[in-house]
Amino acid sequence: MPDSNRSKQSKEREVDKGRRNFLFLLPFGIFAGLAATITTAAFRYLRPAKPIHDEKWNDIAPIAELKGDKPVMRSIVVEHQAGWASTLEEHFVYVLPNKGNEVLSSMCPHEGCNVAWRSDTNQFFCPCHDSYFSLDGERLSGPARRGLDPLPTREQNGVLQVKYQSYVNNTEERIVR
């Protein structure tokens, strides 16, 4: 008799405990639900936006003007639209008249500084971390892991045009950004 009574009591206690656990857990479940709703919205809200690249061809110069065996520096202004603002950025490019007017981006493939042309040594040189590149953009020395990046070009009505493109820096292969 006392035994059965005891088991009954413990059973009741167990039921009671289950009930208490449920009462304790349900609010957490509700809070988790609210938090999940907001988190989902926040995730979508904060997800990185794809910037809109300027797919435009920029005039560089009339082909007839591009002569000589030294690179010719030009600047192009590219429109970047990211988020709520569109900004204009000036980028420098080098035209290589004796290499079929190939156009190189002046952005150093190492950390993105702008390289300069040194006429005394006939090399491109990055003033930030001393990477050197040959006349046709090949990597010679320094921390850069690849040569200067060529940009897509075309000829339109006798004018050389270029499309601006940036690549992921500090990699051996060229990955379009």
């Binding site: 300027d54 435009k56 920029n58 005039d59 560089i60 110069a61 003007e65 010719v72 520096m73 030009r74 600047s75 192009i76 202004v77 590219v78 429109e79 204009l88 000036e90 002046s106 500084c113 702008n114 390289v115 300069a116 042309w117 040194r118 040189f125 990055c126 003033p127 930030c128 004018v159």
Partner: peptide, 29 residues
Amino acid sequence: SNVNASSNMQTNVLTGGPPESYIINCSAC
């Protein structure tokens, strides 16, 4: 955006202004 294509800027930049040493060492940034 295409204004710079005109070549006059180039001459401004290279003859009108800074010393060669500036162009090489400083103009990048």
